[in-house]
């Protein structure tokens, strides 16, 4: 399901889409990347035509919300990232700063070596804030981008 029009300005969504495209292009293993609002709306996705993006967006926010509850129950700080490892690939759910936005980047990737790289990319995430500035939830989206990662 597409996000309500009030969630982010079109320009912000376009900027987020471009960053997702850069991210996916610089990493062959990324099958799908979906930026998700706290309440499960798809904000942007690559490939943009992915039929499962809306469902993965909703599931990502559910799992993020559940891990949040678990972290709280365990007396920990706010849940940041989640890793789902399978025999054929990995799903990362990365909390986007600031965590109060509740925005999650879901990355579906194949291949075993990808996990460390993806996590590294998330920790050295690149601010896409300027493109998103002015959105009415005043979020600065920090999306992982490929460039810095591959230069090292």
């Amino acid at each position: 399901m597409a996000a309500p029009s009030t969630l982010l300005r079109p320009a912000a969504i376009a900027a987020a889409s471009r960053h997702l495209e850069d991210f996916a292009q610089s990493n062959d293993g990324v099958k799908l990347a979906v930026l998700t609002s706290s309440d499960g709306f798809e904000i942007a996705a690559v490939p943009a035509t992915a039929s499962s993006a809306a469902r993965i967006a909703a599931m990502s926010s559910s799992i993020q919300a559940l891990s949040q509850a678990l972290a709280q129950e365990a007396g920990l700080a706010a849940s940041r990232n989640l890793i789902i490892e399978t025999d054929t690939g990995t799903v990362l759910l990365l909390g986007v700063e600031p965590s109060s936005s509740g925005i999650v980047l879901a990355v579906v990737a194949t291949g075993k070596e990808l996990l460390g790289k993806l996590l590294w990319a998330s920790s050295s995430s690149h601010s896409a804030g300027r493109g998103i500035a002015g959105s009415n939830i005043s979020v600065q989206l920090n999306l992982p981008t490929g460039e810095r990662r591959w230069q090292r």
Partner: peptide
């Protein structure tokens, strides 16, 4: 109770 409340963006 365990709750999983998140910010609601869909005010419509």
């Amino acid at each position: 109770p365990v709750a999983t409340e998140v910010h609601n963006n869909d005010r419509q």
